[in-house]
Amino acid sequence: MTDGQARCLIVGGDQLLREGLQRVLSGVVDVVDMFDTLIHGMNGRSEPPAVDIVLLLEWHPGDLQFLECLRRLRSGSPKRRVVILGRDLDAWSIRVALKEGVDGYLVRDFGAPALLHSLHLVLLGEGVFPRRVVQQLLQGGVENGGLSRHGEMPVLSNRQTEILERIANGQSNKEIARGLGTSEATVKVHVRSVLRKIGVENRTQAAIWAHAHGVGQGELTPRPSAAAAPV
């Protein structure tokens, strides 16, 4: 384990899959624990394991006991990241994941480089979701109809629109700052203003809102990791 390397918990799947992922992830995180299931792993624990990121190979959005265990796992640290590595997508499961504060929802149809890149972005504080997730949510409709909290279409400045486009195209604050030739602190101020104006709470919702309104039509994912999108 290198100095400062994040500690990871892998949950679900069979033992062979977990051990295989442990080898794949060794350059990005240090896998310090593995559970066969989340419920079994959390039973009997007074405190959740001390990890920085949790990789869920199982996702049961309709299981209240499972969701309660997930909340207990997250309660140990508000900065603990949770990423789902699932088999498929459906809009309801994605909505539950977002409601539970999951930081990434990935599908097992891409290679190790894309997974490593996605987890790196999550550890930097980004949310990482495939473009198909955004499409699934848009098919279900945008809950507020694209209006601001006051019921009116928001008016964004040229700079705010440009920043929203870059959020929708998957750029982090650091990348936006570099592209615009400004400071990351300035970008953070603009991002907060954009979120407030369009009536959303985070970058994931901002990207969905942007694509629903034709803002940022490029790929959500920065190349070469075309499978997942930071939002």
Score class of each variant (00 low, 15 high):
Gly86His: 09
Gly86Tyr: 08
Arg87Phe: 11
Asp88Arg: 14
Trp92Gly: 06
Arg95Glu: 03
Val96Phe: 03
Ala97Glu: 01
Ala97Arg: 10
Leu98Arg: 13
Leu98Met: 11
Leu98Phe: 04
Glu100Trp: 02
Glu100Ala: 10
Glu100Thr: 03
Val102Arg: 01
Asp103Lys: 03
Gly104Asp: 02
Gly104Trp: 00
Leu106Phe: 05
Leu106Glu: 02
Val107Ile: 12
Val107Trp: 03
Arg108His: 07
Asp109Trp: 08
Gly111Ile: 06
Ala112Ile: 06
Ala114Cys: 13
Ala114Phe: 07
Leu115Asp: 05
Leu116Thr: 04
Ser118Arg: 01
Leu119Gln: 04
Leu119Trp: 02
Leu121Val: 02
Leu121Glu: 08
Leu121His: 07
Val122Tyr: 02
Leu124Cys: 12
Gly125Cys: 04
Gly125Tyr: 01
Glu126Lys: 05
Glu126Met: 07
Gly127Met: 10
Val128Arg: 00
Phe129Pro: 00
Pro130Leu: 09
Arg132Thr: 06
Gln136Glu: 15
Gln136Val: 01
Leu137Met: 12
Leu138Tyr: 06
Leu138Thr: 02
Leu138Gly: 10
Gln139Tyr: 13
Gly141Gln: 12
Glu143Thr: 11
Asn144Glu: 13
Gly145Phe: 10
Leu147Gln: 10
Leu147Ile: 03
Ser148Phe: 08
Ser148Ala: 15
Arg149Ile: 15
Gly151Arg: 11
Glu152Pro: 03
Met153Asp: 14
Met153Val: 15
Met153Phe: 15
Pro154Glu: 09
Pro154Ala: 12
Leu156Phe: 01
Leu156Ile: 05
Ser157Phe: 06
Ser157Lys: 04
Ser157Val: 01
Ser157Glu: 13
Asn158Pro: 14
Thr161Tyr: 09
Thr161Asp: 09
Thr161Ala: 08
Thr161Lys: 13
Glu165Ala: 12
Arg166Met: 15
Arg166Ser: 10
Ile167Leu: 15
Ile167Cys: 10
Ala168Arg: 09
Ala168Trp: 03
Gly170Asn: 01
Gly170Lys: 00
Asn173Val: 07
Asn173Pro: 11
Lys174Met: 12
Glu175Phe: 02
Ile176Ala: 05
Ala177Lys: 03
Gly179Ile: 01
Gly179Asp: 14
Leu180Asp: 03
Leu180Met: 15
Thr182Tyr: 05
Glu184Asn: 11
Glu184Ser: 08
Ala185Leu: 09
Val187Glu: 10
Lys188His: 10
Lys188Phe: 07
His190Leu: 06
Val194Met: 02
Leu195Phe: 08
Lys197Met: 07
Ile198Asp: 05
Glu201Thr: 10
Glu201His: 13
Glu201Arg: 15
Asn202Ala: 05
Asn202Asp: 15
Ala206Tyr: 05
Ala206Cys: 06
Ala207Leu: 08
Ala207Ile: 00
Ala207Lys: 07
Trp209Ser: 05
Trp209Val: 05
His211Ala: 12
His211Gln: 15
Val215Glu: 07
Val215His: 04
Gly216Phe: 03
Gly216Met: 03
Gln217Asp: 14
Thr221Arg: 13
